[in-house]
Write a protein that binds this DNA or RNA. Structure first.
Lengths: 250, 250
DNA sequence: TGTTTATGAAAGAAAATGATTGAAATTGAT
DNA sequence: ATCAATTTCAATCATTTTCTTTCATAAACA
């Protein structure tokens, strides 16, 4: 492999990915890390990229740093605690469905696993995934302005192309009779479909959602594992008959 | 093997491959590496190629896709003129496909028509459409980070659900032999499909795109009306045989 | 025949590569 | 905040590959 050839490959990778690790490049070009380091130094002199610790970043584009986010992890509120735990469930190579919603959005910064593929119907999720350099797919469909979720027939069809190792679904109501519910029937429909296409199902919901029921039914309580922050021990016993609940401790 | 004969072969190889090794050329021409080195030195003097350690590189950098930033900085005013005219073509109740890209993005603020439905594969477009309160659908698919366009099988399937009154497509090359082209084959594929599903097709491209051809073929020149800012009258006559061009005046 | 031109081979110079080392940065836990 | 463990980095060296230069040979041409 010629030097110039590698340089082209590196720049191509950067077009696709914003940030690439040295290991990835070395693997893609069949050369040693030493060589890639030399390549990066040279390309940086030519202003073709910016070197960062562990790899290279494409020039002219901003990116948010991870470490700051992680440091503030100490002061996590409930949502972030749940999100952090949820992210820890994701393993290298997983294919994930990430529901639209604020709690699911919080999961993204905490994802540590490599080579993860995420499918989502949430517009806000996409931007966050992009900044983390995570391989991202969208369902497509009609945009619901209020929640910035994609819904409808288009989203349903888009969703059906994929199968997931794990899915993370947000809900508005968890009720021992009504099951899992959310206000919009269209959104409920998409959530339900994602659940059926996933090996493992995780429901993310803070404790305020318990004993609530809203308009549209998604699925029964036993459809998946509920991740939440803290629950009355009474409540817990009621629900643990019907489903699996993981309480994330501070 | 004659000298000139070898030279032709070398240049042909470079058209196919961007970079060729000396060994490869020596093998293809049945001559020694010394001879090929002499050939390369000579061809470099004639500016026909660039020598690199171990081989030769083609001198044109057509495959280099300019990043969104660079592009948008360069031809901003031209783009806006084109965009404004394009937006004026949209009528009440129209269903529109809006390609991902900077020129198509500029169209959105100028849309005056009511009750318009827009389908797009561009992430940036969605945000802009949302702020304008326009009914928005996405194709879905795989996110290409650099251009923030959704591509691949998912985008293709998503696209097929809709038919359009009009579509607006951005291209990187307009060439009387190569037709309409763009650097990424995946994006080309989506653009092509959108064109076939649309009643009226508009190609938006500033004048710098004329007589350029890039890697991936989209469709022939006569697939639609080309909207551009200004063209040499010579150029215009050449192209007007093959297609319809609307030059937007300041 | 003698001159020019192209070719291939060989030798030493230059460049590129991969491995190794201690230094520096990052991370996670206390 | 501080410390220890891990990862990544720059510098260096030996090895390999490629380049330039030079030379000898062979073909082309007058």
């Amino acid at each position: 492999m010629l030097t110039e050839e590698r340089h082209l490959i590196i720049l191509q990778l950067l077009k696709e990915k914003e940030i690439v690790k040295i290991q990835e490049i070395a693997e893609a070009t069949n050369s040693s890390e030493s060589t890639i380091r030399r390549d990066l130094s040279q390309l940086e002199l030519e202003k073709k990229l910016k070197r960062v610790h562990g790899g290279a970043a494409s020039v002219s584009q901003k990116r948010n740093e991870l470490s700051m986010m992680e440091k503030s992890a100490r002061f996590l509120n409930e949502k972030k605690r749940i999100a952090k735990y949820a992210a820890s469930l994701i393993q290298d190579g997983d294919c994930i469905y990430l529901d639209a919603g604020t709690t699911t959005l919080e999961i993204i910064p905490f994802i540590k696993a490599n080579d993860v593929t995420v499918v989502t119907n949430g517009l806000t999720n996409v931007e966050s995934l992009l900044s983390r350099g995570i391989q991202t797919y969208m369902t497509g469909g009609m945009l619901k302005p209020k929640t910035k979720a994609f819904i409808g027939r288009g989203a349903w069809l888009g969703l059906q192309q994929y199968n997931f190792d794990k899915c993370f679904i947000g809900v508005n109501g968890i009720h021992y009779e009504s099951g899992l519910t959310t206000p919009d029937p269209e959104e409920a429909f998409i959530k339900k479909q994602a659940i059926t296409q996933s090996q493992e199902v995780f429901i993310v919901a803070d404790s305020s959602k318990f004993n609530q029921s809203t308009f549209a039914y998604i699925a029964s309580l036993k459809s998946g594992t509920i991740l939440t922050d803290e629950v009355d021990s009474e409540l817990l016993t009621v629900y643990q008959d019907q489903t699996t609940i993981k309480v994330v401790n501070p």
